[in-house]
Design a protein around this nucleic acid. Structure first.
Length: 598
RNA sequence: GCACCCAUAGCUCAGCUGGAUAGAGCGUUGCCCUCCGAAGGCAAAGGUCGCACGUUCGAAUCGUGCUGGGUGCACCA
């Protein structure tokens, strides 16, 4: 029973067998357990949730291992070895299983018949881009909010990592059967856009031949110079020497729009496309903030009160103040959080509550926010708000993206021509390209710091994962070209129909096993909301492929192109299947596979 | 003072729903290219998974308490 895939899969139907060997074998195991229950060998009503079928870490233990006997021993009141022995006998009868052996404290190691592996190559070739796609998400609506950089300048490296992490996660979740929306929250409602307007005004004065006065606190970057010029084109000299109240609102609007244009271009340079841009400013005056807070008030979660001063490090100017507070402590936060300042204006938190409420009301089943690591302190209150506003229905997962440390020639690299004070996304992408940028940004867990060395990421060597994976794909394409030149038909239809019984060597089977892991890896990565696992998997897959290639140096029988056409097709089919999975994986990372290394 | 994140080989890091003898790359050491697939390959050494208790048949993984590092802590966003 394969549920229909909800999104991003217009083809809809697939084969009944989804070729996730791990779930397939787990079914075999659970059916055997059911048969044992029917035969009175095991009691009824056992919880099978913890029964796992996994690849053993040590290949010597077989192709698959299950912990079923150990998990069931206690509830069944039977010794694990006894359960394992009976289960082994039943499993050995399955046509897919060559051997079932009991090992250790009660592990059951399964060895699969070679044709199970060989069939998988054909399945990859016929399913192509669909191989590994999962129905796990069941079409649930997930909102991934990421980047959300303030519209006050170009995107910097930190945003870049957040953009890549968010976009790759969105692609991963879509592949795992979720209905994904990518969203950008524009912080255009706070004091920082006033600062932007004032900064733009100075550039406007500059465009009119005056000396700009970039005071402390204003944005000094060169990127505002064209904005000043554009303002001159629009207003001529009419705003010169005018007080701020005359121009502030207009310039804020104008400059914010320009900054968002720039940010959209930055995102485009990285091949990131948002589905929705939400504006903070647009929440004001619509009653949305009030409505969200009213909802909290109805739950008695809003009150007027005075917070305790923070312990240990009291700010110099601290004084007791009555504020409107959100009782976030009821939902796991450490202290209650102000939503309204003492002067009656909203804090940043208030529109953010309204924004997240809006996401809940739009019917998302799951929310994911990608924040910079410096926003870690914001996580609990945001989760508290979402929990309260959705009555606990909608989980919010917050992914904190850690720092990117830049290096050039082994030296820390901090300067940017364009922005003056920080390294921009463009500084990176213009130099190494979007593909390398994206891959490298995914070679660490999101919460670990990342070193990015401009030289190393372009290096053509084994310790550069980007190159190593791309090189594998290039070699595969090279084999296909050579086969075609040699007159061997290697189109996908032909290869998919090939008999792969010739693939019996351990190095070939090892590569197939790695391919078989792909559907499982997609689900694990999606369950954890962690796209970096795909990058690590691809490196391992490439490593297995290169390993097979290298063995071909010594053992001619392991080369892909053989004298015999049918044998060539089987071996090239394996190479091509590897290429399919590499392409699928790179697709999730948003990286274009290269056909040729230059 | 509190909260969050992190701690795994000399270095940089993976490690799935708890699973068997904890992995990779770099570095180190030793082998391997007249040529046929070397922008390399094979192999070895290298570990108190920060520490201590606990839960469990089983803990790098879960819990508690420590230690060390990072981040953040009322009218900033």
């Amino acid at each position: 029973m394969t549920p229909s895939v909800a999104s991003g899969n217009p083809g809809g139907d697939r084969q009944d067998n989804d070729m996730n060997l791990f779930t397939e074998l787990r079914t075999v195991v659970t059916e055997a357990i059911a048969a044992m229950q029917a035969a009175g060998e095991l009691p009824e009503g056992l919880d099978l949730a913890n029964v796992a079928v996994e690849p053993p870490r040590d290949a010597a233990h077989g192709d698959m291992a299950t912990n079923a006997a150990m998990v069931l021993a206690k509830p069944a009141g039977l010794p694990p070895r006894k359960i394992a022995d009976t289960l082994a006998a039943r499993l050995a009868a399955d046509p897919r299983i060559a051997a079932a052996e009991v090992a250790g404290p009660g592990f059951l190691n399964l060895r699969l018949k070679a044709n199970v592996w060989q069939r998988l190559v054909g399945a990859v070739l016929s399913q192509q881009g669909e191989f590994g796609r999962s129905a796990m998400g069941q079409g649930q609506k997930v909102n991934v909010e990421f980047v959300s950089a303030n519209p006050t300048g170009p995107m910097h490296v930190g945003h870049t990592r957040g953009a890549v992490v968010g976009d790759a996660l969105a692609k991963l979740l879509a592949f795992a059967g979720y209905d994904v929306t990518r969203e950008y929250y524009i912080n255009d409602g706070g004091a920082q856009v006033d600062v932007l307007a004032r900064s733009a005004y100075e550039r406007y004065r500059e465009a009119n031949g005056q000396e700009p006065q970039i005071a402390e606190g204003l944005y000094p970057g060169d990127y505002l110079i064209p904005v000043g010029q554009a303002l001159k084109d629009l207003y001529g000299d009419s705003l010169l020497d005018q007080p701020e109240r005359v121009w502030l609102a207009d310039l804020r609007e104008f400059a914010t729009e320009k900054m968002m244009e720039m940010i959209r271009e930055d995102l485009a340079a990285l091949n990131v496309e948002m589905d929705v841009y939400s504006s903070e400013k647009a929440l004001y005056g619509t009653g949305k903030i009030e409505a969200a807070l009213q909802r909290l008030r109805d739950m008695d979660l809003i009150y007027e009160g005075v917070l305790e001063p923070p312990k240990g490090k009291t700010p110099e100017d601290w004084e007791p103040r009555e504020q409107t507070l959100f009782r976030s402590t009821l939902h796991g936060d450490d202290v209650d959080r102000p939503v309204m300042k003492s002067d009656g204006s909203w804090t940043y938190f208030a529109p953010d509550i309204a924004y997240h409420f809006d996401k809940v009301e739009r019917g998302f089943d799951q929310l994911i926010d990608i924040f910079g690591a410096d926003h870690g302190g914001y996580v609990k209150r945001m989760k508290a708000a979402v929990a309260a506003l959705s009555n606990g229905r909608v989980p919010l997962d917050v992914k904190l993206v850690n720092l990117v440390k830049l290096f050039k020639n082994g030296e820390p690299f901090k300067m940017s021509k364009r922005a003056g004070t920080f390294v921009t996304l463009r500084d990176v992408v213009d130099q190494v390209g979007p593909d390398v940028t994206r891959f490298v940004m995914l070679t660490r867990k999101n919460d670990a710091p990342l070193d990015f060395d401009f030289d190393k990421v372009l290096e053509q060597s084994k310790d550069n994962p980007v190159f190593y994976v791309q090189y594998a794909n290039a070699r595969i394409n090279s084999v296909l070209r050579k086969a075609t030149e040699a007159g061997v038909p290697v189109d996908d239809l032909t290869l998919a129909a090939t008999d792969f019984a010739d693939l019996t060597h351990e190095a070939e089977l090892a590569l197939i096993r790695k391919l078989a892991e792909w559907p499982r890896l997609v689900e694990i990565a999606a369950r954890n909301n962690e796209a970096h696992r795909v990058a690590f998997y691809l490196y391992e897959l490439a490593s297995d492929f290169h390993g097979l290639w290298n063995r071909g140096n010594d053992e001619v029988s392991l080369r892909f192109l053989q004298d015999d056409t049918a044998t060539s097709q089987a071996k090239i089919g394996l190479a091509r299947a590897t290429g399919v999975v590499i392409s699928n994986g790179l697709g999730i990372l948003g990286v274009t596979p290269v056909e040729e290394m230059r």
